[in-house]
Design a protein around this nucleic acid. Structure first.
Lengths: 205, 205
DNA sequence: TAGATTGTTAATCGATTAACAATC
DNA sequence: TAGATTGTTAATCGATTAACAATC
């Protein structure tokens, strides 16, 4: 397996497979097939097999895939067989929700700090976190070695903050601001913008 | 233009173009080109032109596109030249953040109600909203004629709630729960799962 | 007019599906 | 063994890009 050669579109489906497998494991299931997994996630069995086979031969003819083994392989491939520290930038409602989010722990992530540029917010608490000043953010992120950030600042501030994050060594940004970010090629961005996602559906209504 | 013939992948890019155009308009710009718009959103000029041309001839050779006109056309195509009522199901932190979200108003959406199944939450306030009981949800959505829902309940409850939403006439679901939903073909789902999105980036770290 | 940029066609590239030998 | 299901190949399908005539 060579990371450079795997299409983004396949990498993008792996977390979906992983999520479905973990739900199957929760139900006590031990094995699954490309057919069953495909039904679960709405993808053809052929595609599931093709995607998985990019990384090795993880199944057995006749019996399918061991859920535990495939889960372990996917977690390793996606590098979520460890815990990644993550920072939140923007202490609004969304930043608040992400700081408290219970769904990170068993999926490989851990929020370690939250930043905001409003002086009146700095120093106050969100759950266990004390909101820190954006001015000290770059140094803090560098010293902690954090590589992943979630960005929940207003669109007008997002590009500036993204630039600072990159300076600080961040290589993956989950961007909640409704704006396309301009970042170097070696930095990944995923976009979560509720309005944009809603607008992808109204077309069909 | 025939909605049935436009690939999903193109429809998915239109809200991104629209968002960029609205930012250009905010800056006071009057016209743009496929090249400039493409640079802005990280898509080739040829693809921008091809996508837009699916719906008509909205540009002018030599001068490009009128930002105001193209914005108006895209809003019409995406059916966000009107305001859609939206309900939120799940009054946790994420439901709270979405209920207060300021980014819906000028993008075509308006939250009208929020539901939760926890009796102790029902009746309490989130901003201007009174949390309503999930038990009465189907009737309430029907009577309001709401077609769009945002789902922020736990994964274990999401499929059941989705089924109820479909019964109530909802045709578009923005799903924050980390699970693939099973819905009829005429119902659209968009997925927003922070962990899944983060896992799409760790592969490259 | 000359320069710029669209809309569109044809070529290329990439992704998905169908089919089946291999094999558990 | 017989049945089931993988991994993979070849065929199909669809999306992107390059190129350019049309034209503002």
């Amino acid at each position: 397996m060579n990371a450079e050669k795997i299409p983004d579109i396949i990498v993008g489906r792996l977390p979906v497979y992983l999520r479905a497998l973990q739900r199957m494991a929760d139900k006590g299931l031990k094995t699954t097939s490309s057919q069953e997994l495909g039904d679960q996630v709405g993808i053809s069995a052929a595609q599931i097999r093709k995607d998985i086979s990019q990384f090795g031969e993880f199944g057995k003819q006749g019996t399918g895939y061991s859920i535990e083994f495939l889960t372990e392989r996917l977690r390793s491939i996606l590098k979520v067989d460890r815990i990644w520290d993550v920072v939140v930038v923007g202490a609004g409602d969304m930043g608040h929700a992400l700081s408290n989010y219970q769904g990170f722990a068993d999926r490989g992530f851990h929020v370690v700090a939250i930043f905001d540029n409003k002086k009146e917010k700095v120093g106050s608490k969100i759950g266990e976190f004390t909101i820190e000043d954006t001015e000290t953010m770059v140094e803090r992120i560098k010293s902690m070695g954090v590589k992943i950030a979630m960005l929940t600042v207003p669109a007008t501030a997002a590009q500036d903050v993204a630039k600072k994050l990159v300076q600080a060594g961040v290589r993956a940004i989950l961007n909640y601001a409704p704006i396309t970010l301009n970042v170097p090629n070696n930095v990944k961005v995923q976009y979560i913008d509720p309005s944009t996602h809603l607008q992808r559906m109204t077309f069909y209504l």
